[in-house]
């Protein structure tokens, strides 16, 4: 495990904790896309089925379990405990536009045509687009709370660090996985516009609002 990989995992975990803390402290999930969070829960569920079939390391097992828990608790807070604060109106991205192409692609382009491998591929493709409902919601309302932008920043940082991890692994182990790398590049591109706004506005103490 290299430094980019571990920092990437830490960023990912931090993003999820920031989101949970934001919802818990404010007792509100205003500005958060429930659809994106449901997609992330589906991503982890379909990817981590190997928890039952393979053992890699204590770290791997614990992190997978923690990620799953965070995702499910977040979905519960949005659609359960704090559903009255959920902005259903602005969370209007059509999920079928993501789910249908992603499902089709995972059947067409995978490493082996086995259920676990197709589900893994599906989760990789889905993760690369899962944030779109959230970004769509922000562009629709034209603003985001600062803590929500911190969440998005760490989520984007995780993707960028994983790219560095793959470059490192390619250089040192001559290992690469085309499906993960292409999806990783795609999802990191989605964050570029946001990164720009984050650096030019949020880090200078301003609220993120779109013209």
């Amino acid at each position: 495990m290299n430094i980019f990989r571990i920092l990437g995992d830490v960023s990912h975990l931090l993003a999820m904790i920031i989101l949970l803390v934001k919802i818990w402290r404010s007792k509100s999930c205003a500005g958060i896309s429930g659809k994106s969070q449901v997609l992330f829960a589906i991503v982890f569920t379909s990817r981590y089925l190997d928890l039952f079939t393979n053992f890699f390391s204590i770290y791997n097992t614990v992190m997978k379990f923690v990620f799953l828990m965070c995702a499910y608790i977040t979905v519960y807070l949005i659609y359960g405990k704090f559903r009255k604060t959920f902005d259903n109106e602005n969370d209007s991205f059509r999920l079928e536009f993501l789910l249908i192409p992603v499902t089709g692609l995972s059947f067409l382009e995978n490493q082996s045509f086995t259920p676990l491998e197709i589900l893994w591929t599906f989760s990789i493709y889905l993760e690369s687009v899962a944030i779109l409902p959230q970004l769509f919601m922000i562009s629709k309302t034209g603003e985001a709370e600062t803590i929500t932008t911190h969440y998005l920043f760490f989520l984007g940082l995780y993707h960028a660090l994983y790219l560095a991890n793959w470059i490192w692994r390619y250089q040192t182990e001559n290992y690469y996985d085309q499906i993960a790398v292409v999806s990783g590049v795609v999802q990191t591109i989605f964050y570029c516009d946001f990164f720009y706004l984050y650096v030019t506005k949020v880090l200078k103490g301003k609220k993120l609002s779109l013209p």
Binding site: R5, D9, H12, D50, N54, F56, S57, N60, M63, K64, F67, Q111, S112, E117, W120, Y162, N165, Y175, D177, A180
Partner: peptide, 10 residues
């Protein structure tokens, strides 16, 4: 094994 290798990632 490439499949095992990638699945070590999260």
């Amino acid at each position: 094994n490439i499949i095992l290798k990638k699945k070590d990632e999260l």
